[in-house]
Design a protein around this nucleic acid. Structure first.
Length: 324
DNA sequence: ATCCAGTTTG
DNA sequence: CAAACAGGAT
């Protein structure tokens, strides 16, 4: 029962049914109260924005800390309040406004997404998982998150925080591996509270509060490396803590490629140079491009990949610019 | 399984 | 300095 390998096997679904804690109801109650008292006051929460605003916040938050997203989201929504507005914007403005959020392809995908919503859906977000999943840049997590947080639908949201918290609290082990296993998804589904007889605002429904509370707990208390178990509202019912936190902080993913010297760094340099062009100038000439990186073979490879991604355009003389 | 890309944290 | 971060596409 306390054997880590056995429980990892159970989490992968190789063993018989996991003995889920019977006090799941108490955990739900404690987390709902904790959410009520501790939820960060982010501008896209508590029904203060449109479904489109929620989608924008989710895309910006993919692999980017929420705290850094807030100022970008606020400026973005003021400039482009809905999908139709973003669909009309020049790409160069979109890329520039994305600034240093990282992963600039997300900005282009968000605009493609805005095109589809504006023209195919009359500027209203679709309400079904399959339709949302089909949108550019929207995967399982974001589709589920929009359904839950924007529309109040009862659906299990599975992200890295929720995986970590549910695995720790209910199975007693760290969540391992790259993507969510079927067993982890099943666990999330099984624990999702019912919304029956809940006559309240969309964002106050039990399943929505549960998704947000578990995620928030993972982001602020039940963190990967050094969880603040002293401050955790469910510490008394946590299987991981009871087990002595086996394998705490154990690496879940393979070591990542170093940044220094990689294509990512070079791509970042090129985009940053284009963003930093003086007012009125739109083109970075070949000489300036070559000054960015000594290895011209790698440089040209990165320029080509940026062009393929639609993030830049290559001009006849070898200069580059942001697409219009 | 890898790539993407910028910042914060331990 | 490496890991981690409300992932998605290939």
């Amino acid at each position: 029962m306390n054997d880590t390998n056995t429980m990892h096997a159970a989490l992968r679904g190789n063993a018989t049914t996991i003995a889920i804690e019977t006090d799941a109801d108490e955990i739900e109650t404690a987390l709902a109260q904790w959410w009520h008292d501790n939820a960060r006051d982010l501008p896209w929460r508590f029904g203060r924005t449109t479904p489109w605003g929620v989608l924008v916040s989710e895309v910006m938050s993919q692999q980017t800390q929420m705290g850094r997203v807030v100022p970008y989201w606020t400026a973005w929504m003021e400039r482009w309040p809905d999908a139709a507005a973003l669909a009309e914007a020049p790409k160069s403005d979109v890329i520039t406004a994305w600034g240093r959020l990282g992963y600039p392809r997300r900005a282009l995908r968000l605009q493609e997404c805005a095109h589809v919503i504006a023209y195919d859906y009359a500027d209203e977000l679709p309400h079904t998982y399959d339709e949302l999943l089909a949108l550019p840049g929207i995967g399982d997590y974001t589709a589920s998150a929009v359904l839950s947080f924007a529309f109040g639908e009862r659906i299990a949201v599975v992200d890295t925080n929720i995986r970590r918290v549910l695995s720790r609290a209910f199975v007693g082990v760290e969540s391992l591996g790259g993507s969510a296993s079927p067993a982890e998804r099943a666990l999330a589904k099984r624990l999702l509270p019912d919304d029956d007889s809940a006559k309240c605002r969309r964002f106050d429904r039990p399943s929505v509060v549960w998704n947000q509370a578990v995620m928030e707990l993972g982001a602020t208390v039940c963190t990967a490396k050094s969880p603040l178990c002293e401050a955790c509202p469910i510490a008394g019912k946590c299987a991981f803590l009871r087990n002595g936190r086996p394998g705490l902080g154990q690496r879940r993913t393979r070591p990542r490629q170093l940044f220094q010297g990689t294509d990512r760094q070079v791509r970042g340099l090129v985009l940053n140079a284009l963003r930093g062009l003086p007012d009125g100038e739109t083109v970075l000439d070949r000489k300036s491009v070559e000054r960015l990186w000594k290895d011209h073979v790698q440089l040209d490879k990165c320029i080509a990949s940026l062009d393929e991604d639609g993030l830049i355009e290559i001009l006849p003389g070898g200069g580059v610019r942001l697409p219009v």
